[in-house]
Simulated assay, not measured.
Amino acid sequence: MLLTVRKICMISSLLGVMACSASVDQQVTETKESSALTVVQWPIIYNDKREELSLEYLNKRYNIKAEEAKITPKMVVVHWTAIPTLKASFNAFNSPMLPSSRGKISSASQLNVSAHYLIDRDGTIYQLLPNTTFARHVIGLNHSAIGIENVGNGSTLPLTTEQLNANIALIKQLSQDFPIEYVIGHYEYKNFVNHPLWKEVNPNYLTEKTDPGETFINQIRASLTNLNLKNVPELPQ
Rank of each mutant, 00 (worst) to 15 (best):
F134G: 06
P73Q: 10
N228F: 10
T156I: 11
S155R: 05
A92S: 15
N165M: 01
A82Q: 08
I8C: 08
A88M: 09
N63C: 09
I45P: 01
N226F: 11
Y57A: 14
L224T: 00
E214G: 02
R61D: 06
K65P: 12
L55P: 04
I139K: 01
I71E: 04
V113R: 07
N131S: 15
M97F: 05
N226L: 13
F192H: 02
L98H: 09
T225W: 06
Y46T: 06
T38L: 06
L3Q: 14
T72W: 04
R6E: 14
W80V: 11
R136K: 15
S175L: 04
E56T: 15
A166G: 13
P196K: 08
V5Q: 10
L3D: 11
I105E: 15
V193H: 12
I125D: 00
G140R: 04
E68D: 12
I45V: 09
V40P: 00
A115P: 01
S114R: 01
L58K: 09
I45N: 10
V138P: 04
T4Y: 02
E68Q: 15
S100E: 14
T207S: 11
L128P: 01
Y205I: 08
V24G: 03
H195C: 06
V17T: 11
K104P: 03
I44G: 00
L55D: 08
Q26E: 03
L37W: 09
V151I: 02
K49H: 02
M97A: 12
V78L: 13
L129T: 04
M75A: 11
N150A: 05
I220F: 02
H186V: 05
L14N: 11
L129W: 10
Q163K: 13
A66N: 11
